[in-house]
């Protein structure tokens, strides 16, 4: 047990080091970095404005109010921001596999997948995370338990986003280049999770809690925050955990089929 704990602390240290160097690399182009963060913040804000306008016309949609939709957007953005600012490389998995560029990562004495994930950060995703926390704090004005629950949930949502992206990205081992498919699936996950889940029923709802786990990043967190309930929180983390196990298996099973490549490549 102590061994695993030490290993975890060691990886945490490595992740922090990567974060420091990634930030340093991105700040080499300071203006570009700041403008990307701001642009993503503004982009997200436009959507919230759109929904606010929508709810001024239709105040309640199947029991959902503007406050619920803002919560939905905030938790989604915060989870997405955490996932892709700290684990940016998860989006690159199909690219790295298809172009044979996992080589550099495989030469290091670290577990491949966790090392790969912490290797690159995204400036724009940091903008998403800031947006999520800021919007929830500013528009919803939560009390301390709600805010703490929001923070906890944002990590659960991040777990689902990362696991889903690993799973879709790892399909490159089996199907060839799935870069476009990965983008579409991630886009679909975000799109479905930012609509009030009560508008979906039956088979679609089933899909949203399985193949396209939008229910775990939208509906359940919003429900947990609305009811201040821990059961949906546990469901979010359980869903994320199961998905991460499946994704890890699919990734490592596919790794034996990896074919490398000979493209020129630079890091950072």
């Amino acid at each position: 047990m102590i061994r695993y704990f030490n290993k975890f602390i060691n990886y945490l240290g490595l992740a922090l080091a990567y974060m420091r160097f990634n930030l340093r690399a991105q700040l080499e182009y300071r203006q570009a970095f700041i403008s990307q963060v701001v642009a993503m913040f503004v982009n997200d804000a436009f959507w919230v404005v759109f929904w606010c306008l929508f709810f001024t016309k239709f105040p309640v949609v199947r029991g959902w109010t503007s406050k619920d939709v803002i919560t939905l957007w905030a938790i989604n953005a915060a989870g997405y921001g955490i996932a892709f600012s700290f684990f940016r490389n998860v989006n690159n998995i199909p690219y790295l596999i298809a172009r044979g560029q996992l080589d550099s990562w495989m030469l290091y004495p670290r577990a491949l997948l966790p090392h790969l994930l912490v290797g690159t950060m995204s400036a724009t995703a940091i903008g998403d995370a800031i947006f999520g926390y800021a919007v929830y704090g500013f528009f919803i004005r939560p009390d301390i338990p709600h805010m703490l629950l929001f923070v906890l949930l944002s990590f659960g949502v991040a777990l689902v986003f990362v696991s889903f992206s690993i799973l879709v990205g790892s399909l490159s081992f089996y199907l060839g280049n799935v870069e476009a498919l990965g983008d579409q699936m991630r886009g679909a996950l975000v799109a479905f999770s930012t609509y009030p889940a009560s508008i979906f029923d039956g088979a679609i709802k089933l899909i949203l809690f399985s193949f396209l786990p939008a229910g775990f990043v939208g509906y359940l967190p919003a429900q947990a925050l609305r009811e201040l309930s821990f059961i949906p929180v546990l469901e979010v983390f359980a869903g994320g955990f199961v998905m991460s196990c499946v994704a890890t298996f699919v990734f490592y099973y596919g790794l034996s089929r990896y074919e490398s490549g000979s493209l020129m490549e630079m890091r950072g």
Binding site: A25, S104, R267
Partner: peptide, 14 residues
């Protein structure tokens, strides 16, 4: 240790 002439482990911007 491994050095691939067409791959770099150095960080380009650092």
């Amino acid at each position: 240790g491994a050095v691939f002439g067409q791959r770099s482990q150095l960080w380009y911007h650092l």
